[in-house]
Simulated assay, not measured.
Amino acid sequence: MTMPVFHTFTDGKSLLSSNVRPDIVFLDIQMPELSGIDVGNILHNKYPDAIIIVITSFMDYLDDAMRFNVFRYISKPIDKDRLFRNMQDAVTAYNNRSSTLYVKCGSDYKLINQHDIIMVEASLKQTIIYTTNGNFRTYQSFSEIKEKLAHNYFYQCHRSFVINLNYVVSHNSHNIYLNSNLSADVAARKYSDFKEHYAAYVNSHV
């Protein structure tokens, strides 16, 4: 079992400038230079799957915190039982989020970070997983791989393609163009839905 590693920072700027990739974050609202709301928005854009808990005396910022999908908003003074209860909820939520794929590629198994996946394509009897670190071919079915993509930035635009919205460069009614000179087909009946889905995703990350 891997033991958790705890990092503490005196302000949000120190956290953001560190090389720590946080899984669960506790933020105060009042901090030097950058507020907890500012830090929460930056963290959410940089690490969309980070679980953020706000602890504060100010209840007026709840609407702002909802913009970065705050997991819990805990008021001061802190009740120890409530704090530990919410910590347990956060750990449970984290454990339920799979951030990696374990894929059989030939005779080997590969661990692929979902954040690095640009798109997935069904190609004949194989499934091709295109990532920022190279491409991986597997005989695991397209539907099986698709079911393991647990994050809201994945979108199935065609029966043979799932794309990562983080890597969209441009699009038209026939194709979606992505980083690494990749493109995916768009089903005609799905283009309107894709545009709405993509617009909502972009707006949530502004």
Results as ranks from 00 to 15, higher is better:
156 Q>V: 07
177 Y>G: 00
147 E>V: 13
166 N>W: 02
177 Y>D: 02
153 Y>N: 10
167 Y>S: 02
166 N>A: 02
149 L>S: 04
159 R>G: 02
155 Y>D: 08
165 L>N: 09
153 Y>T: 09
151 H>N: 10
156 Q>F: 05
175 N>P: 09
170 S>L: 05
145 I>H: 10
167 Y>E: 07
179 N>C: 08
171 H>E: 10
173 S>V: 14
167 Y>N: 05
168 V>H: 01
176 I>V: 14
146 K>N: 08
178 L>R: 00
150 A>S: 15
168 V>Y: 00
177 Y>I: 01
148 K>Q: 14
155 Y>P: 11
175 N>G: 01
174 H>A: 09
176 I>R: 00
154 F>C: 04
159 R>S: 07
163 I>M: 03
180 S>P: 11
148 K>Y: 13
167 Y>A: 02
145 I>T: 15
159 R>F: 03
175 N>I: 08
159 R>A: 07
163 I>V: 10
152 N>L: 13
165 L>K: 05
146 K>W: 11
147 E>Y: 11
163 I>A: 06
172 N>D: 15
149 L>N: 06
172 N>Q: 05
152 N>P: 11
152 N>D: 14
155 Y>C: 12
177 Y>C: 01
157 C>N: 11
158 H>G: 03
157 C>K: 01
161 F>Q: 04
164 N>P: 10
166 N>L: 02
173 S>P: 10
158 H>W: 05
162 V>Y: 00
178 L>F: 00
148 K>G: 10
175 N>K: 15
160 S>K: 05
175 N>Y: 14
153 Y>I: 09
156 Q>C: 13
158 H>C: 08
160 S>L: 02
149 L>K: 05
169 V>D: 02
154 F>M: 01
150 A>N: 13
157 C>W: 03
174 H>P: 06
162 V>Q: 06
153 Y>K: 08
160 S>E: 08
158 H>F: 03
145 I>K: 03
171 H>W: 05
155 Y>S: 14
171 H>I: 01
148 K>V: 09
157 C>H: 04
154 F>H: 09
172 N>I: 07
147 E>L: 13
147 E>N: 11
167 Y>D: 06
166 N>S: 01
149 L>E: 06
178 L>G: 02
168 V>K: 00
152 N>V: 11
154 F>P: 01
175 N>L: 11
176 I>N: 03
174 H>Q: 13
178 L>M: 02
160 S>P: 10
151 H>T: 10
165 L>W: 06
153 Y>S: 08
154 F>I: 06
175 N>S: 10
168 V>F: 01
161 F>P: 14
168 V>I: 08
150 A>T: 11
169 V>E: 07
161 F>C: 07
167 Y>F: 12
174 H>N: 15
159 R>K: 15
163 I>N: 02
174 H>Y: 12
151 H>Y: 06
178 L>A: 03
162 V>R: 01
149 L>I: 08
178 L>S: 02
152 N>M: 08
165 L>R: 05
166 N>E: 14
165 L>C: 12
156 Q>K: 09
167 Y>Q: 03
174 H>L: 12
150 A>K: 14
155 Y>W: 09
162 V>W: 01
171 H>V: 06
168 V>A: 00
173 S>Y: 09
172 N>M: 06
151 H>C: 12
178 L>I: 00
178 L>P: 03
179 N>K: 13
152 N>S: 14
171 H>G: 00
163 I>P: 05
162 V>A: 06
